[in-house]
Amino acid sequence: MATTVEEHAAGGLQIHPMDQFVVKPLFGHGPIEWYTPTNVTLWMAIAVLCVVALMVLSTRRRAIVPSRGQSVAELFYGFIHKMVEDVAGHEGLKFFPYVMTVFLFIFMSNMLGLIPMSFSTTSHIAVTAVLAMMVFLTVTLVGFYRKGTGFLSMFWVSSAPLILRPILALIELISYFVRPLSHSIRLGGNLMAGHAVIKVFAGFAGAMGVASVVPIAAITAIYGLELLVAAVQAYVFTILTCVYLRDAVGEAHH
């Protein structure tokens, strides 16, 4: 790493683990306006196509005895349906298409992001923040719409001693507003960290000659872990959405 100083002067490391996240226009080199088709557009479109292929094309035959694709689609349907019903309650089923949308988008994006040379849209804070803010706003608005000011009783823990309640209310309030932050950072951070680690190891592999078998083996192992993380983070984001929705639509549980 003799060239570190020069590299710093150029504003980066020798290994560029963050290059993979750069948003580029698909055509030309113009500035990125809000409507410019970029690699974000491309990979989101691919995610949409995957969702359509899985949920629409494979269920085209409406078979009583399902084909392989149809049983996967039914598996997802049953899995999310049960999750919404169990966690958010029966009232939460009104939000089932919404939760399903969020889950399928995140799941497909995570999986697509693991294809080498691809671009993982869910590793961007902009994307996850919008997803999390949508959940936050939905929960808040639906909560106030359905329960009125009774929604605020969520912060007033009536089972605690009276003297502790204001303190608990403050803590609950802060944790309520931290929710969208942690909700989005968890997903984006996990994805970003995993991809960056793989990239760093790949940089080692490029620099180590014959000994690069070691980083390549490590990349393989981390790749397996990342597959797990991609699925688990989609699951976690969805189940937390359901947990937050329960506050808005479920019975008071304090």
């Binding site: 963050m18 942690s182 968890r186 951070g189 996990n190 688990v232 976690v236 189940i239 947990v243």
Partner: peptide, 27 residues
Amino acid sequence: MANLFVGIAFAEALGIFSFLIALLLMF
């Protein structure tokens, strides 16, 4: 299992925050 994953997610989020701080400092 659901509770397990929710618990892990909550615990992990705080670690991810510090990772984020590190990235912010770096870049």
